[in-house]
Amino acid sequence: MNIIKEFKMYQASIGDRTNLYKNVVDAFQIKSALYPGSHIDIMPSFVISDVTYIDSFKGTIAFFKEMNSIYGFIEKNKVFDGDFKLNFIGGDYRERFEIEKVDLLISQFAGFIGQETKRYLKKGGILLCNDSHGDATLAYCDEDYEFVGVVNPSNEIETQNLNSYFQFARKRPIDIQKVKETMKGPKYKESAENYLFKKMC
């Protein structure tokens, strides 16, 4: 299959995340990003000039072998001026790689990205994650991160009234061990599609 057609089918199935990434980039002056467990979601490269993708899935590795086609497609769809850099690492993100620290760490449905790869995130950098596998919950309970915002269904960033998130209807502590074992985010009284955390150290 043509990889551009493959990407467009994938984009149609997951939704267009371009505005999600763009709004985060604009809000936090993002220049570089790391996307572990990316599959073939190359939408960050439409809005960020320096992105590294990591994935061990054979289909993803095959996709990124067509780098000339990917570069040409991004060149046509990027919303910024100037050159861009795209790197792909075909491996398990839990391994250690030689990666320069980045401004943004992206976690979308791929496990505990915020924990396993936070060494690559700069101090003051941003973790963008959902809680499908509990990644946002682990970041919320991690002293290395500060909870700074949510992204609403319109992809708008909200930074006020965050105290209502990560709270149960009946007040009780978060069971971190259970989250790690089940790889599933708890059901909270209020939730968001994506969460934003700042790395504090």
Rank of each mutant, 00 (worst) to 15 (best):
V150R: 09
F88C: 11
G59D: 04
K123H: 03
S45Q: 06
R94K: 15
D81Q: 10
L20N: 00
F197C: 04
G90K: 00
V148S: 00
Y165N: 03
I54M: 09
G114R: 02
S69M: 14
V102Y: 02
L138C: 00
F84Y: 06
L127T: 10
A110V: 06
L138V: 01
K122W: 01
E66G: 04
H133N: 13
R170L: 14
M9H: 13
K65L: 10
G114D: 09
E156Y: 13
N19H: 10
K180D: 11
G149V: 04
L20D: 02
I99Y: 02
E66K: 09
I14K: 13
Q11S: 15
L196Y: 06
K187S: 12
T52I: 10
L20S: 02
G124E: 03
G149Q: 03
Q177W: 07
K189F: 13
G125L: 01
D41M: 13
Y10H: 07
N161Y: 13
C129R: 05
D50H: 12
R17N: 14
L86P: 05
I61W: 03
T159Q: 09
Q115W: 12
K8D: 12
K199N: 10
E143H: 10
D16S: 13
D55E: 07
C141S: 13
K78A: 12
I4G: 03
F84G: 05
F80N: 06
I61Y: 04
D55Y: 05
E143L: 05
K118H: 07
I126F: 04
Y93G: 01
K123S: 08
V24A: 04
Y10W: 09
H133Q: 14
E193C: 07
N163S: 14
N2P: 15
Q160C: 08
I157T: 09
Q11C: 13
L104R: 02
K187D: 15
I126D: 04
V25P: 03
M43I: 11
F88S: 03
H133A: 12
Y195M: 02
Y10Q: 01
D81N: 13
G185M: 10
N77Y: 12
M43W: 08
I48L: 02
R17F: 15
R170F: 14
Q177T: 11
Q11L: 15
T18D: 09
E143D: 15
T18P: 08
D92P: 01
K122R: 10
E158P: 05
G72F: 10
S32Q: 05
L34P: 10
I40Y: 11
G185K: 09
S132T: 14
L104A: 06
I30C: 08
E116M: 01
Q177N: 09
I40F: 13
K171M: 12
K184C: 13
Q11K: 15
A62D: 14
V150Q: 08
G90E: 01
S45C: 09
P173H: 07
G124S: 01
G185C: 11
C141T: 15
C201N: 11
K85P: 02
F147W: 00
I40S: 07
V179K: 05
V51K: 06
Q115A: 11
G185V: 11
L196T: 00
D103N: 04
Y71N: 03
M67E: 14
R119W: 07
N2Y: 13
N23W: 06
T52P: 07
C201L: 07
H133C: 08
V148N: 03
T52F: 10
G90C: 01
S69G: 14
